[in-house]
Structures are given as C-alpha cells and as structure tokens.
Amino acid sequence: MTNVKMKVNGKAVAREVPDETLLSEFLRENLRLTGTHIGCDTSQCGACVVHVNGKVVKACTTLAVSLEGAEITTIEGLANGDLHPMQVAFNDNHGLQCGFCTPGMIMAGVDMVTRYKAEGRELTPEAIRQELEGNICRCTGYHNIVKSIQDAATRM
C-alpha cells in the first residue's frame, strides 16, 4: 500500500491504495470519478484516456502510484461552468450514439486540437482520423466524431 498524492481536476487528492492500482481504478473506485470508462482493459480502445501533466495517457495502462505529484484532468474536469467547446461540438454534431467511448474521444480531441494549434499545423480530417488511432467507437462509424473535432477546433 502507498499513499498516492496527485492533483485531479485542480484538486489535491491523497488515497492509500495497493501498488498495483491502475490510474483508471484509482479514478473510478477511489475518487468515484466514473466518467473515465474502462472499455477493453487491454490498452486498445481509448475509453479511459485522460490527461496526465497535459498529455493523453491510457489510464488503464498506468499505475496510480507512478504518478505521485502529477496533474490529472478527466472528463469531469473539462467543463468550467459551461461545457467545454469540444463537448458542445460533440453535442451539436451528433458525435456520439451510446456515449461509452465519448469521454476518451473528447479528451483525445482536446489534446489533438491543442497540440496542432501549438505547433501551427492544420488539423485536417485525415490528421484527425490518424490521431484517433487509439480510440475505438463501435456505434458512429467515426464520421460525426471527426466533424465534431473539426468543429471544436474552430471554437477553441
């Protein structure tokens, strides 16, 4: 057991957990932040994607204990009173059906828009599809997810 301390969605948290606790379990079971979904548990589907120190990471393939002092943002931490522009864009463009993969899609979307803007690169639909390599959706066929992220890029 280790007392793991980190900052989650701007709030300092500390929990005594077994060393084998995955970040996804830490968020869902210890902090009750159940917006981070566990889809495949084999690092393929991306439903558990969160931001760790500003970078996308698969929470199901990271030990919580290894993130001592890290800053984590989950889907719950994205809206600031109003919904985040990425969330609004997914709503407006019907970028989800069952919604299970959506938290990961939105966290990945925010990351790619932020990164491409910082690097001064154009986020084309082809680039969005490439960037979504690690996020699987079984409902939408991806078209509206790509549209949502493109739309959000103009609002962010």
Binding site: G46, K55, V57, K58, A108, E131, E133, G134
Partner: peptide
C-alpha cells in the same frame, strides 16, 4: 508506434 497515448508512455 502504437497510438498517441501509448507513445506518451
């Protein structure tokens, strides 16, 4: 290699 999230770790 892999996807963006995997490349970050």
């Amino acid at each position: 290699i892999g996807d963006r999230a995997v490349r970050n770790m």
